[in-house]
Design a protein around this nucleic acid. Structure first.
Lengths: 105, 105
DNA sequence: CGTGTATATGCCTGTTGGGATATATTGCCG
DNA sequence: CGGCAATATATCCCAACAGGCATATACACG
Protein backbone atom coordinates (compact mmCIF):
# COMPACT_ATOMS: atom_id res chain seq x y z
CA UNK A 1 0.00 0.00 0.00
CA UNK A 2 2.62 2.46 1.11
CA UNK A 3 4.34 1.99 -2.17
CA UNK A 4 1.20 2.53 -4.24
CA UNK A 5 1.13 6.20 -3.31
CA UNK A 6 4.74 6.65 -4.28
CA UNK A 7 4.13 5.02 -7.60
CA UNK A 8 1.09 7.14 -8.29
CA UNK A 9 2.94 10.29 -7.32
CA UNK A 10 4.52 10.36 -10.76
CA UNK A 11 2.20 12.11 -13.24
CA UNK A 12 3.36 10.13 -16.25
CA UNK A 13 2.56 6.93 -14.46
CA UNK A 14 -0.95 8.09 -13.70
CA UNK A 15 -1.23 9.01 -17.35
CA UNK A 16 -0.23 5.48 -18.30
CA UNK A 17 -2.88 4.03 -16.03
CA UNK A 18 -5.46 6.33 -17.55
CA UNK A 19 -4.53 5.10 -20.99
CA UNK A 20 -4.68 1.50 -19.92
CA UNK A 21 -8.20 1.98 -18.65
CA UNK A 22 -9.29 1.70 -22.24
CA UNK A 23 -7.61 -1.66 -22.61
CA UNK A 24 -4.34 -3.43 -23.26
CA UNK A 25 -1.63 -1.52 -25.08
CA UNK A 26 1.85 -2.32 -26.35
CA UNK A 27 4.72 -0.13 -25.18
CA UNK A 28 5.16 1.67 -28.46
CA UNK A 29 1.57 2.73 -28.33
CA UNK A 30 2.15 4.37 -24.96
CA UNK A 31 5.36 6.00 -26.13
CA UNK A 32 3.49 7.70 -28.95
CA UNK A 33 1.08 9.51 -26.67
CA UNK A 34 3.39 10.25 -23.78
CA UNK A 35 5.97 12.85 -24.82
CA UNK A 36 8.59 10.53 -23.37
CA UNK A 37 11.34 8.39 -24.84
CA UNK A 38 10.80 4.67 -25.05
CA UNK A 39 13.30 3.82 -22.31
CA UNK A 40 11.56 6.24 -19.95
CA UNK A 41 8.22 4.59 -20.61
CA UNK A 42 9.68 1.14 -20.10
CA UNK A 43 11.08 2.28 -16.79
CA UNK A 44 7.74 3.55 -15.61
CA UNK A 45 6.10 0.33 -16.68
CA UNK A 46 8.63 -1.57 -14.64
CA UNK A 47 7.78 0.47 -11.57
CA UNK A 48 4.07 0.04 -12.19
CA UNK A 49 4.57 -3.68 -12.56
CA UNK A 50 6.53 -3.77 -9.33
CA UNK A 51 3.58 -2.20 -7.58
CA UNK A 52 1.18 -4.65 -9.17
CA UNK A 53 -0.64 -1.87 -10.96
CA UNK A 54 0.03 -3.40 -14.31
CA UNK A 55 0.71 -6.78 -15.87
CA UNK A 56 2.24 -7.85 -19.14
CA UNK A 57 1.31 -10.34 -21.79
CA UNK A 58 3.92 -11.19 -24.35
CA UNK A 59 3.09 -11.57 -27.99
CA UNK A 60 6.18 -12.08 -30.14
CA UNK A 61 8.35 -9.01 -29.75
CA UNK A 62 5.40 -6.96 -28.64
CA UNK A 63 4.44 -6.67 -24.98
CA UNK A 64 0.89 -5.80 -24.09
CA UNK A 65 0.41 -4.04 -20.80
CA UNK A 66 -2.82 -4.28 -18.92
CA UNK A 67 -4.25 -2.62 -15.84
CA UNK A 68 -4.44 -4.44 -12.50
CA UNK A 69 -6.96 -3.06 -10.06
CA UNK A 70 -5.93 -4.68 -6.79
CA UNK A 71 -3.69 -1.89 -5.52
CA UNK A 72 -6.37 0.64 -6.36
CA UNK A 73 -8.86 -1.34 -4.38
CA UNK A 74 -6.47 -1.13 -1.46
CA UNK A 75 -6.11 2.59 -1.99
CA UNK A 76 -9.85 2.82 -1.94
CA UNK A 77 -9.98 1.07 1.38
CA UNK A 78 -7.24 3.29 2.78
CA UNK A 79 -9.52 6.14 1.88
CA UNK A 80 -12.50 4.53 3.54
CA UNK A 81 -12.24 6.00 7.06
CA UNK A 82 -11.80 9.46 5.57
CA UNK A 83 -14.71 8.92 3.25
CA UNK A 84 -16.80 8.07 6.25
CA UNK A 85 -15.91 11.47 7.63
CA UNK A 86 -17.19 13.43 4.70
CA UNK A 87 -20.17 11.27 4.02
CA UNK A 88 -21.17 11.59 7.62
CA UNK A 89 -20.95 15.38 7.43
CA UNK A 90 -22.91 15.17 4.23
CA UNK A 91 -25.47 13.11 6.05
CA UNK A 92 -25.55 15.73 8.75
CA UNK A 93 -26.13 18.38 6.12
CA UNK A 94 -28.91 16.35 4.63
CA UNK A 95 -30.53 15.94 7.99
CA UNK A 96 -30.14 19.65 8.47
CA UNK A 97 -31.79 20.39 5.16
CA UNK A 98 -34.54 17.98 6.04
CA UNK A 99 -35.33 19.95 9.12
CA UNK A 100 -35.45 23.07 6.99
CA UNK A 101 -37.78 21.82 4.29
CA UNK A 102 -41.31 23.14 3.95
CA UNK A 103 -40.20 26.61 5.06
CA UNK A 104 -43.71 27.99 5.45
CA UNK A 105 -44.86 25.37 7.85
CA UNK B 1 -4.78 16.95 -7.48
CA UNK B 2 -1.45 15.96 -8.93
CA UNK B 3 0.20 17.30 -5.86
CA UNK B 4 -2.04 15.40 -3.46
CA UNK B 5 -0.46 12.12 -4.50
CA UNK B 6 3.03 13.46 -3.98
CA UNK B 7 2.11 14.71 -0.56
CA UNK B 8 0.53 11.42 0.43
CA UNK B 9 3.51 9.49 -0.87
CA UNK B 10 5.37 10.30 2.34
CA UNK B 11 4.50 7.76 5.07
CA UNK B 12 4.95 10.18 7.95
CA UNK B 13 2.49 12.53 6.37
CA UNK B 14 -0.09 9.80 6.06
CA UNK B 15 0.57 9.02 9.68
CA UNK B 16 -0.12 12.62 10.59
CA UNK B 17 -3.40 12.54 8.72
CA UNK B 18 -4.35 9.36 10.51
CA UNK B 19 -3.69 11.02 13.84
CA UNK B 20 -5.68 14.07 12.89
CA UNK B 21 -8.66 11.90 12.06
CA UNK B 22 -9.28 11.77 15.77
CA UNK B 23 -9.38 15.54 16.00
CA UNK B 24 -7.30 18.68 16.28
CA UNK B 25 -3.81 18.38 17.69
CA UNK B 26 -0.99 20.80 18.52
CA UNK B 27 2.39 20.22 16.91
CA UNK B 28 4.07 18.98 20.07
CA UNK B 29 1.43 16.31 20.37
CA UNK B 30 2.28 15.03 16.91
CA UNK B 31 6.00 15.18 17.60
CA UNK B 32 5.55 12.90 20.59
CA UNK B 33 4.02 10.06 18.62
CA UNK B 34 6.00 10.40 15.42
CA UNK B 35 9.59 9.39 16.04
CA UNK B 36 10.59 12.61 14.34
CA UNK B 37 12.16 15.85 15.46
CA UNK B 38 9.95 18.89 15.82
CA UNK B 39 11.37 20.69 12.78
CA UNK B 40 10.71 17.66 10.63
CA UNK B 41 7.11 17.54 11.77
CA UNK B 42 6.69 21.26 11.14
CA UNK B 43 8.01 20.76 7.64
CA UNK B 44 5.54 18.01 6.91
CA UNK B 45 2.73 20.11 8.29
CA UNK B 46 3.76 22.91 6.01
CA UNK B 47 3.59 20.60 3.02
CA UNK B 48 0.25 19.23 4.13
CA UNK B 49 -1.06 22.74 4.53
CA UNK B 50 0.22 23.65 1.09
CA UNK B 51 -1.83 20.80 -0.32
CA UNK B 52 -4.88 21.86 1.64
CA UNK B 53 -4.91 18.62 3.57
CA UNK B 54 -4.63 20.40 6.86
CA UNK B 55 -5.45 23.76 8.39
CA UNK B 56 -4.21 25.57 11.48
CA UNK B 57 -5.88 27.41 14.29
CA UNK B 58 -3.68 29.52 16.51
CA UNK B 59 -4.16 29.58 20.24
CA UNK B 60 -1.43 31.60 21.98
CA UNK B 61 1.88 29.93 21.23
CA UNK B 62 0.15 26.68 20.44
CA UNK B 63 -1.01 25.80 16.95
CA UNK B 64 -3.79 23.31 16.49
CA UNK B 65 -3.77 21.40 13.24
CA UNK B 66 -6.93 19.98 11.81
CA UNK B 67 -7.76 17.72 8.90
CA UNK B 68 -9.24 19.09 5.67
CA UNK B 69 -11.07 16.58 3.53
CA UNK B 70 -11.37 18.40 0.21
CA UNK B 71 -8.23 16.97 -1.43
CA UNK B 72 -9.25 13.50 -0.32
CA UNK B 73 -12.63 13.99 -1.90
CA UNK B 74 -10.81 14.84 -5.10
CA UNK B 75 -8.65 11.78 -4.74
CA UNK B 76 -11.81 9.78 -4.33
CA UNK B 77 -13.16 11.16 -7.55
CA UNK B 78 -9.89 10.47 -9.35
CA UNK B 79 -10.41 6.92 -8.26
CA UNK B 80 -13.97 6.85 -9.47
CA UNK B 81 -13.49 5.57 -13.04
CA UNK B 82 -11.26 2.79 -11.75
CA UNK B 83 -13.75 1.94 -9.06
CA UNK B 84 -16.37 1.58 -11.73
CA UNK B 85 -14.13 -1.02 -13.33
CA UNK B 86 -13.92 -3.27 -10.34
CA UNK B 87 -17.48 -2.82 -9.23
CA UNK B 88 -18.62 -3.72 -12.68
CA UNK B 89 -16.55 -6.90 -12.64
CA UNK B 90 -17.97 -7.60 -9.23
CA UNK B 91 -21.41 -7.16 -10.71
CA UNK B 92 -20.44 -9.56 -13.44
CA UNK B 93 -19.31 -12.06 -10.83
CA UNK B 94 -22.57 -11.67 -8.99
CA UNK B 95 -24.51 -12.26 -12.15
CA UNK B 96 -22.38 -15.30 -12.76
CA UNK B 97 -23.06 -16.65 -9.30
CA UNK B 98 -26.71 -16.00 -9.81
CA UNK B 99 -26.74 -18.23 -12.83
CA UNK B 100 -25.04 -20.91 -10.75
CA UNK B 101 -27.35 -20.93 -7.78
CA UNK B 102 -29.63 -23.88 -7.05
CA UNK B 103 -26.97 -26.35 -8.26
CA UNK B 104 -29.25 -29.40 -8.27
CA UNK B 105 -31.85 -27.88 -10.49
C1' DC C 1 22.31 -16.78 -39.83
C1' DG C 2 21.69 -11.88 -40.51
C1' DT C 3 18.79 -7.92 -40.29
C1' DG C 4 15.10 -5.11 -38.50
C1' DT C 5 11.75 -4.18 -34.99
C1' DA C 6 10.12 -3.93 -30.21
C1' DT C 7 11.42 -3.50 -25.67
C1' DA C 8 14.52 -3.64 -21.68
C1' DT C 9 18.84 -2.27 -19.09
C1' DG C 10 23.09 0.41 -17.82
C1' DC C 11 25.18 4.44 -16.92
C1' DC C 12 25.38 9.32 -16.06
C1' DT C 13 23.49 13.71 -14.57
C1' DG C 14 20.56 17.22 -12.48
C1' DT C 15 17.06 17.85 -9.26
C1' DT C 16 14.21 17.04 -5.44
C1' DG C 17 13.08 15.81 -0.85
C1' DG C 18 13.53 14.34 3.85
C1' DG C 19 16.20 14.56 8.00
C1' DA C 20 19.15 16.72 11.53
C1' DT C 21 21.11 20.71 13.93
C1' DA C 22 21.16 25.41 14.80
C1' DT C 23 18.68 29.61 14.99
C1' DA C 24 14.80 32.87 14.44
C1' DT C 25 10.03 34.08 15.76
C1' DT C 26 6.04 34.66 18.47
C1' DG C 27 3.50 35.09 22.48
C1' DC C 28 2.97 34.39 27.50
C1' DC C 29 4.11 35.38 32.21
C1' DG C 30 6.48 37.22 36.07
C1' DC D 1 11.45 44.10 29.91
C1' DG D 2 13.58 39.33 30.49
C1' DG D 3 13.15 34.71 29.91
C1' DC D 4 10.71 30.47 28.82
C1' DA D 5 7.71 27.61 25.84
C1' DA D 6 5.95 26.34 21.32
C1' DT D 7 6.67 26.45 16.67
C1' DA D 8 8.74 27.92 12.35
C1' DT D 9 12.66 28.75 9.20
C1' DA D 10 17.60 28.31 7.40
C1' DT D 11 21.30 25.57 6.14
C1' DC D 12 23.56 21.49 5.01
C1' DC D 13 23.94 16.59 3.74
C1' DC D 14 22.62 12.44 1.66
C1' DA D 15 19.74 9.30 -0.89
C1' DA D 16 16.39 8.50 -4.30
C1' DC D 17 14.56 9.32 -8.75
C1' DA D 18 13.38 10.79 -13.38
C1' DG D 19 15.20 11.52 -17.82
C1' DG D 20 18.34 11.02 -21.77
C1' DC D 21 21.57 8.37 -24.62
C1' DA D 22 23.79 4.27 -25.68
C1' DT D 23 23.48 -0.50 -25.75
C1' DA D 24 21.79 -5.18 -24.86
C1' DT D 25 18.18 -8.65 -25.50
C1' DA D 26 14.43 -11.09 -27.79
C1' DC D 27 11.97 -12.42 -31.54
C1' DA D 28 10.27 -12.83 -36.39
C1' DC D 29 11.30 -13.37 -41.09
C1' DG D 30 13.75 -13.85 -45.29
Amino acid sequence: MASTFEVLAEPHRREILDLLREGERPVGDLVERLALTQPAVSKHLRVLRGAGLVEVRQDAQRRWYRLRLDPLVELDSWLEPYRRMWTSSLDALERHLDTMEDPDE
